[in-house]
Design a protein around this nucleic acid. Structure first.
Lengths: 220, 220
DNA sequence: ACGCGACTTGGCCACTTGACCAAGTCACGT
DNA sequence: ACGTGACTTGGTCAAGTGGCCAAGTCGCGT
């Protein structure tokens, strides 16, 4: 019913649609101004709405924060992960994985900064405290999936649980991102990732490429 | 002259002394309330001063932020690093180093949170942008020194430059700290550090403690 | 047609914030 | 003694803040 008018320029909007627009608007403002400069008025202005519209869609500002971190809007990396996994060396594959991950972060630094900004704010609020944990778990889960996929598609074997590797990767990338935001030294960051990839490669072995064999073969 | 009255309860204070007290007070407020709840009034209240005192000691609030991050007050870890370096295994030594580092962070989580909170705020301010970079360089420098000290005192050899190892350590710990602040999972964090120590150990060799030989000996 | 109820809007409120200032107060050198 | 200048203090200000609301507007089912 309400689907046909989606493209109409300035007609009446459902509360749902307004919520969505306010969420993306708030994200844009936060990327530009930081959480300190993100007022309800600034959000509405960004969304092209009058100020009163805000509290019609959200009970409070905190409810918007909650919706943001709960994943109603994707702050962090997209799911688009095209690259990786011919039958190259295991070290190359790990390296490619890390660089693809990093490209996502580097492509939108402000989004990453919002993550720290909003996160460290929300961690003080007793009711919203656990949202970063959720978001971290989700991100860890995605990483684990990619680690697994990498194992399957690139024919690798890991010397410890995939979840452990995923945790090493996500935490390290978080730290690298934070320090990069501080100094913006592309070369140092790249070198750091390169070394880390080398270290991780030490946890992998190339799986013998014999068709439909389920047996493992110890490292040479 | 003004030294004798340092202990007097409520006498006149030098602008310098007030500055110091306001800095520590602001740090306390920020640990408790976060940067969002840190107003000039809250700072003065914490320091037990009237509100007007603030702008007598600081031209503006940003000047206080600058002073904080410039190191006038030590936010991050202290220099106290007693442990480490008998002639144990290289992996043990690395492990001990990481755990000591982590103990510092874990002992005052709010301070670490302030680092992210204040940092992500200040990174938006064109005039204060570079302060986190300074602070990061300082922290990296200290880490490098410890890595070097560890080499000397524990008789290790590194397979790459010490600065590179220091960067791996600091960035990884930053990431670990951030994720720990989110989920507060001590066990997972400990396991993460343990694994990372193992990886780093792969970059070390035990140096043969005889002066007439320059040969390396592979780690057991 | 037509009225109910979902949407809109601008204005208002109580409150906080950073900043400033004009009076005061007191220590100290001369 | 005494005044000069560094310190103190409370009050005030303009600009913003989140939140609320009453009056309006309009779509849609009946």
């Amino acid at each position: 019913m309400s689907e046909q008018e989606k493209h109409k320029p300035h007609r009446r909007l459902s509360a749902e649609e307004r919520r969505r627009r306010l969420l993306t608007a708030s994200l844009n403002v936060m990327k530009r101004e930081g959480i300190a400069g993100t007022s309800t008025r600034a959000i509405c202005a960004e969304a092209g709405m009058p100020h009163g519209a805000f509290h019609y869609c959200f009970r409070s500002k905190r409810e918007l924060y909650a919706a943001l971190l709960a994943g109603d809007m994707e702050i962090d990396l997209d799911d688009t992960w095209p690259k990786i996994s011919p039958a190259a060396s295991p070290r190359e594959n790990i390296r490619e994985l890390l660089l693809a991950y990093w490209a996502q972060i580097e492509s939108d630094p402000d989004a990453q900064l919002v993550l720290y900004d909003l996160g460290s704010f929300v961690l003080r609020d007793p009711e919203l405290q656990e949202l970063p944990a959720w978001q971290h778990r989700a991100s860890l889960h995605r990483a684990t999936e990619y680690i697994t996929r990498l194992r399957d598609e690139a024919g690798l074997e890991y010397l410890c649980e995939e979840r452990a590797i995923a945790e090493l990767v996500t935490t390290h990338l978080d730290g690298v991102a934070w320090s990069w935001l501080a100094h913006r030294d592309d070369a140092a960051t790249h070198a750091n990732l390169e070394r880390f990839a080398e270290l991780l490669a030490g946890l992998t072995r190339r799986h013998v490429a014999v068709e439909d064999s389920h047996t493992f073969e110890p490292a040479p």
